[in-house]
């Protein structure tokens, strides 16, 4: 029996197909990108090898690349410090509501997550449109006309609109994870708190929060890496504009490759992008591990 568990052929049969697909579509392209990144290929005709020149430019000179990273950082910040507290708050109160209403709210909060990003992004472009959008019309209807804005076009507001839409779309995930975390807290613990006369706030600080810690860590690290990887909402809503105010890395490299004919350079960005993602994940994991 141990023989079959060590059988090389069986192992190969089990593991190879998956590894092959994974290597072919995930690892191989990154190696290819690393190579293309060393060329000056315009996506047309022949190319020259330019060594690490592209990589140097990406890391040290490219201001748009830096803006894109900062935007991702801003998104991560808002997700962690605004979306998550709200999600946690609602996870707690839906848990308290109980019964049919609880399942109803839980179901509804997740709806935006099951709808395609293309639909929601295009929908928000219309909602936020300054001329006929729902938001401006709503503000007008409740006599807050002065708040009307060019939500996606204003240089200082566009980024926040984009961040808001991404948070709206992802709210259900954050909520659900906290919700299941709260469901995992043993009832006796909360009961014990109640008997000790703890009010809701004390109960939250003393019992719920510490118990949720592992879930918070998972949720936050997902949020940070997901912030880096945003593309579709930006591609569909602003394409990085006005100027580069709402640019994100993935959209930037796509634009460079297919609009600006800088195929080689875009590939260099792709590789740096992968490295940034890896480093971020490792750093986040380590910070959390040391805190655990």
């Amino acid at each position: 029996m141990d023989k079959i568990r060590r059988n090389k052929f069986v192992i190969f049969f089990l593991v190879f197909p998956g590894l092959l697909v994974f290597t072919f579509a995930v690892l191989y392209p990154i190696f290819m990108s690393a190579f293309y990144g060393m060329t000056d290929w315009k996506g047309i005709g022949e190319f020259n090898i330019v060594g690490f020149e592209n990589y140097r430019k990406v890391i040290f000179e490219d201001k748009v690349f830096r803006t894109s990273l900062l935007n991702a950082a801003a998104l991560a910040f808002f997700t962690v410090f605004i979306q998550h507290p709200i999600a946690m708050f609602f996870a707690i109160i839906t848990d308290k509501i109980g019964g049919k209403l609880e399942s109803f709210f839980r179901a509804v909060f997740f709806i935006p997550c099951v709808i395609s990003i293309v639909v929601t992004s295009k929908m928000w472009v219309n909602v936020l449109n300054a001329n006929y959008g729902l938001l401006n019309k709503f503000l007008e209807a409740i006599n807050l006309k002065f708040l009307k804005q060019d939500w996606l076009g204003h240089k200082d507001i566009a980024l926040f609109s984009v961040i808001f839409v991404i948070m709206w779309q992802g709210f259900g995930y954050a909520y659900l994870i906290y919700y299941s975390g709260i469901k995992g807290i043993p009832e006796e613990l909360l009961e014990a708190g109640r008997i000790d006369g703890a009010n809701s706030w004390q109960q939250f600080i003393k019992i719920t929060l510490p118990m949720l810690k592992p879930v918070i860590l998972v949720n936050v690290s997902i949020a940070i890496t997901a912030s880096l990887k945003q593309m579709e909402p930006i591609y569909l809503m602003t394409n990085g504009g006005p100027g580069t105010r709402t640019q994100f890395v993935a959209n930037y490299l796509y634009m460079l490759a297919f609009n600006a004919q800088k195929y080689g350079y875009a590939n260099a960005i792709a590789v740096v992008f992968v490295i940034v993602c890896l480093i971020t994940t490792v750093v986040v994991q380590n910070i959390f591990k040391s805190k655990d």
Binding site: K42, K155, G241, P242, G243, R245, M255, L256
Partner: peptide, 20 residues
């Protein structure tokens, strides 16, 4: 030719949006 097009197009959009 080259990336001139995407460069000057980005620059004018920034200018029009009041960024520069």
């Amino acid at each position: 030719p080259g990336d001139w097009k995407s460069n000057v197009e980005n620059l004018i959009q920034e200018f029009a949006a009041g960024i520069t």
